[in-house]
């Protein structure tokens, strides 16, 4: 049953991706990429990665769809026709895809107990969280406590990204414009 649902979700993602390549209306493309995010969130739920699914649904389907719509509102609603030859890009994509598939063949199968992810510190976190931190969600324990430095770095990255967008796209502009107006008159 689980295999059938997984296969169905993967097929739906591929079908949506193919639909995206054929549609010219960018509004529909943005909506379909939101659909892809939701479908992959479902896949993550199937893999028991609920935290990741949560993030994917909130960020992928929520915020980025809104930001893409904002971008469309500033640019154009339909894709321009491409007159160029598409064969070389297609060949590059197929080649890259084959290399990636070849790469996955060497990976341990999903959830295998002897995979590197299960045999190093992961087991220690699972064994120690109940004793040391007393909270049921091990993901939170790892993110906020055992790997607190990493998360501090991530928050700093988010902070820097926000700062960059504000400085580049002129969130500060309103204030400096007001100041300029005050200076002029």
């Amino acid at each position: 049953m689980e295999l059938a649902i997984t296969l169905f979700l993967f097929c739906a993602i591929v079908a949506t991706a193919i639909a995206i390549t054929t549609i010219r209306s960018l509004f529909a493309v943005v909506m379909l990429s939101g659909v892809i995010s939701l479908l992959s969130a479902l896949l993550f739920v199937l893999m028991d990665a609920v935290d990741v699914a949560f993030t994917e649904a909130a960020v992928g389907a929520g915020i980025s769809t809104v930001l893409m719509l904002g971008t469309i509102a500033l640019t154009s609603r339909t894709q321009k026709d491409i007159k160029r030859n598409n064969l070389i890009p297609l060949a590059v994509i197929i080649l890259t895809g084959l290399v990636l598939i070849d790469g996955t063949l060497d990976m341990p199968s999903f959830g295998a107990p002897d995979s590197p992810a299960q045999t190093h510190v992961g087991a220690a976190y699972i064994a120690r969280t109940a004793d040391e931190i007393h909270i049921p969600n091990i993901v939170t324990a790892v993110l906020a406590s055992y790997r607190g430095y990493d998360t501090l770095g991530e928050v700093t990255v988010v902070f820097t990204a926000g700062l960059g967008v504000v400085l580049l796209l002129g969130g500060m502009g309103a204030r400096s414009r007001k100041r300029r107006q005050e200076e002029e008159g």
Binding site: I63, V66, L67, G70, T71, I72, A73, L74, T75, R77, A161, G162, V165, V166, L169, G170, G171, A174
Partner: peptide
């Protein structure tokens, strides 16, 4: 802040 920065620009549509 990112939403403000995008949405504050005058839209063409």
């Amino acid at each position: 802040a990112i939403y403000y920065a995008f949405a504050a620009r005058p839209p063409r549509i």
